[in-house]
Design a protein around this nucleic acid. Sequence first.
DNA 1: TCATTAGTTTTACACCGTTAAGTAAAAAGA
DNA 2: TCTTTTTACTTAACGGTGTAAAACTAATGA
Lengths: 202, 202
Amino acid sequence: MSIAQRKQRHREDMRELILDAARSIFLEKGYDQTSIRNIAEKIEYSPGTIYLYFKEKDEIFHALHEEGFRRMIGKMETLQHVFDPMERLKAFGRVYLQFANDNKDFYDLMFIMNEAVDHEESKWDMGSRALDFLKQVIRDCQAKGHFKNQDVEYLSFMIWAQVHGMAALYCRDRCQVYPPKIGIIKLMENAYTYFVNMLEKS
Amino acid sequence: MSIAQRKQRHREDMRELILDAARSIFLEKGYDQTSIRNIAEKIEYSPGTIYLYFKEKDEIFHALHEEGFRRMIGKMETLQHVFDPMERLKAFGRVYLQFANDNKDFYDLMFIMNEAVDHEESKWDMGSRALDFLKQVIRDCQAKGHFKNQDVEYLSFMIWAQVHGMAALYCRDRCQVYPPKIGIIKLMENAYTYFVNMLEKS
DNA sequence: TCATTAGTTTTACACCGTTAAGTAAAAAGA
DNA sequence: TCTTTTTACTTAACGGTGTAAAACTAATGA
């Protein structure tokens, strides 16, 4: 192993170490508690060290942001087994909502927080891939005669906004305006059922 | 004017002074720049003074949060002039989206940010009033034969999530995954048109 | 006139992200 | 092997944050 290789390896190991610590604090104690100093303490290095491997704090969250998308896309891929396009579309929303429920903090980071966004274009590769998946399902539906004369851009945005709206209201605790006895999960499930029933009829 | 009255008056004046400064900084430079020290500097008082009139920073943003709801409800009231319930429902979404576009920061504070939420129940009075408005429009639609056998809770959540989803993706710059040439406003308008067309058919 | 009180400021604490200077050990060159 | 350079890391500092307690000042009441 050459020296350059070893250095490269060390660099990657350190980045992974930092990311592991950041992820664990983030998932356990939330974004606010995930400070450079807390991460440094967890890996038993000084705060300054982190800046040798990440340009800034946001770069760490950008990395977690991408990890979130990889997880989500992984879940989406199970949908390839749903043969009928319309059923696949309906299942898409359920997988999306399930992901948001199971990974509240990741979802927040990916679709709501400002922190992991802004810098470059690259981060949107992941977002685009996820969106492309939805668009393709819609096109498959159109090939079967659904959604005639509807633009895939507008239609995909409508569907995405529907599921994101529910997930975002859930993540940011805006469902309190509904009677607690209904239950947030039931609220989301039934609202989504109404939505897909409408979709199917159109 | 009694002493107690004068003191009460002074207290209210100071709160208003602080809120005016906070609002102006918030709308001009964003949440991050709206610090206690910046507000204090603007009103030419010391930072400590602010804590004589507000328990904590979040209480200031809670007050702005309520102001946002008053503004939104004000807009909603213009909908009373739309006679047909279904047309009123369709217009509701447009007014909602227009409000989000015209008052991005207020919308963010009201429906996305964590800062103005959590403490008491009182703040949800406003949110509930806005939601009740939507629910009533839906009931009016049902009285005219629409949305048969649909629960107003679930249906209102679906509609709210639809418009919130679009507004939230817009506020938090997640529409970049769509080609810029489409235009965010056009994207939202057309997606909403698709949505209401679907709604009408069901 | 003196004591009390209300309104405000000052100071301090414990954090934060980030950077620059300093240090010690490892690697490279002679 | 000895010296120099590079590498990896730490320490200390800057300017910022929210917030609480102590200190101060001016008006009020007795």
